[in-house]
Amino acid sequence: MAYSMHCALPSRSYFEALETAEKRALHSFFDQHVIEDDELGYFALDEGDYNILPAHLAARVVHTVHGGMLDEF
């Protein structure tokens, strides 16, 4: 699930998306990506929403937070 926040300052938008990705990663098996977008600035995207990230999204990933849950038990 992608979450976005509208913000006039790109750096603020980035840190808000990063915070969202870090919080979600704690409770997810999937990586959380911060994606750069011309209209939205930055937004957090859960890799679990896609089998493989489409090329148009993968090319815009600026940061990845790895999922914090393990499926090895």
Rank of each mutant, 00 (worst) to 15 (best):
G41A: 14
D49K: 10
L9P: 00
M1L: 15
P10Y: 09
H33V: 01
G68C: 05
I52S: 05
E72A: 09
T20E: 09
V62A: 00
G41M: 12
H33S: 07
Y14P: 02
R24I: 03
A25H: 07
P10A: 05
L40C: 01
S4L: 06
S28Q: 08
L53Y: 13
E22R: 15
V61N: 05
F29P: 00
A17T: 02
S13N: 12
L18G: 00
L70P: 00
G48Y: 07
F30Q: 15
Y42N: 09
V34E: 14
G67N: 05
G41Q: 13
F30L: 05
E19H: 09
V34T: 12
A44F: 11
L40I: 07
F73Y: 02
I52G: 00
L57M: 06
D71I: 01
A2E: 15
E19S: 13
T20M: 09
A2C: 08
V62F: 02
E39L: 09
A55T: 13
S11R: 12
T64G: 04
A2F: 14
L9W: 04
I52F: 03
E39Q: 07
S11N: 14
Y42D: 07
T20S: 12
C7V: 10
S13V: 00
A55M: 07
S13G: 13
H56V: 06
H63E: 15
E36F: 02
L53D: 04
E16H: 14
Q32R: 03
Y50C: 07
E36R: 13
L18H: 01
A55N: 13
L40S: 05
G48R: 06
S4E: 02
R60E: 09
A55K: 15
A21I: 05
E36N: 02
V34P: 02
Q32M: 12
V61Y: 11
A25P: 05
E39P: 00
R12F: 01
I52K: 09
V62C: 06
F30G: 03
E39R: 10
M5S: 12
F43T: 02
H66C: 09
M1T: 11
G41N: 13
M5V: 15
P10G: 02
K23V: 10
L26F: 03
A25E: 06
G67A: 06
E72R: 06
L57V: 06
G67T: 04
H56P: 01
A21N: 11
F29G: 04
P10T: 01
E19K: 10
P10H: 06
L45Y: 13
H6V: 11
I52V: 11
L26W: 01
L70C: 02
D46G: 07
H66G: 02
V65W: 01
L57A: 01
R24K: 10
R12M: 11
S28I: 04
